[in-house]
């Protein structure tokens, strides 16, 4: 079996110190394999977001080890970590984090701009990503003028523009109504299925979690093994509405 894309071994993370010390994560082990879709499920404050941040190298674990394609993340240089974040990872957030006054295209090409891609190529790739998400006609609009669903599609386009290996989605449908949320879900799963992009979704929505290959339940900073695993086989109709 191939080396997992990301492998967390008994990782823990705490915030504050002394009396205010709060153990957000108390030792969780997870293997994420290339091309699978994984849901990290838990209630608010369970530590699920902390786990995602650690997996995405946005934060350093206090204990345990994190392996990125077999390499200890601690041994990676800052430059290498930045390259991973920039080129191998894509992020989708509940709050979108779009720059309100910039155009949709400018928002989408931000990772390319950070990577130092020349303007012409930036535009071409940005437009291609928008095309894919059927937002090409909104490229010149400012981000603030988009509807919620359009914003999330723009965010996905931004996550996609660097052709990442892994997309981290933190409550991707949390701010959307059911119908729009379903569309966004379909887009994400289609990317997972058609392009083989590994999908890590943090959610408290059991229905969304059920669409993933595998669920990891987090409770009070620990994995709740009674619920985790792969009991919910994907039902055949899961992708029926993709790109709707």
């Amino acid at each position: 079996m191939s080396v997992p894309v990301l492998s967390a071994q008994n990782i823990g993370k705490s915030y504050g110190s002394g009396a205010n010390r709060f153990d957000a994560l108390k030792g969780v082990s997870v293997d994420i394999r290339a091309g699978e879709s994984v849901a990290i499920v838990g209630k608010s404050g369970s530590g699920k977001s902390t786990l995602m941040h650690l997996l995405a190298l946005l934060d350093d674990p206090d204990s345990g080890t994190l392996l990125v394609e077999g390499t200890d993340a601690k041994k990676l240089k800052g430059k290498e970590v930045n390259r991973l974040r920039n080129q191998d990872f894509g992020f989708v957030f509940q709050q979108f984090f779009l720059t309100a006054n910039a155009t949709v295209l400018d928002n989408v090409v931000l990772p390319l701009k950070i990577a130092g891609v020349p303007p012409r190529e930036r535009k071409a790739r940005g437009m291609a990503a928008l095309e894919q998400l059927e937002l090409a006609d909104k490229a010149r609009n400012t981000a603030i003028n988009l509807s919620g669903g359009q914003k999330q599609r723009a965010v996905i386009a931004r996550a996609l523009v660097n052709n990442p290996k892994v997309i981290f989605a933190d409550e991707p449908t949390g701010n959307l109504d059911t119908a729009t949320g379903a569309v966004v879900e379909d887009i994400l799963f289609a990317l997972n299925k058609d392009k083989g992009i590994t999908l890590i979704i943090v959610t408290h929505d059991i229905e969304l979690a059920a669409r993933c290959d595998r669920q990891i339940f987090i409770r009070d900073g620990l994995e709740d093994t009674t619920e985790s695993g792969t009991p919910n086989k994907r039902h055949p109709g899961a992708h029926a509405g993709a790109h709707a």
Binding site: A56, L58, G78, K79, V81, N82, R83, L84, R85, N86, Q87, F91, F97, L110, P111, I114, A115
Partner: peptide, 9 residues
């Protein structure tokens, strides 16, 4: 934060 998350040093 976003720019840093996207690999800006």
């Amino acid at each position: 934060g976003l720019m840093k998350a996207m690999g800006m040093n």
